[in-house]
Amino acid sequence: MPFFKITLIRSSIGLPKKTQGVLNALGLRKRMATVFKPVNPSTAGQIMRIKELVAVSEVEEALTDAEMRERRRPDPGYYIEKAGIGA
């Protein structure tokens, strides 16, 4: 099931209450926040209201906050050797 990945790029400070209401409804509380919403006409209509503020892409899977954080984690630069496998 496809999802819209919606990221808030521009702040809604000083914009009409209606625009801020749409952002609240989508759960976009601050800049660079990302939410996943199912692809359907109702979500499309919501995105149309805030199209100047967000970056949108279509993805197959919705990620949780924890999963997104895990994907941002940098490579630690080391690995732990396990004894007793080959020797």
Partner: peptide, 28 residues
């Protein structure tokens, strides 16, 4: 650049809805 970004958003929504064979929305 900003104009193109909005165009991209429109394109993405349109493609996604078409792929699902869903009806479009009036605003779009």
């Amino acid at each position: 650049k900003r104009l193109r970004l909005v165009d991209n958003v429109i394109q993405t929504i349109d493609n996604a809805l078409k792929k699902q064979n869903m009806e479009s929305t009036t605003k779009l």
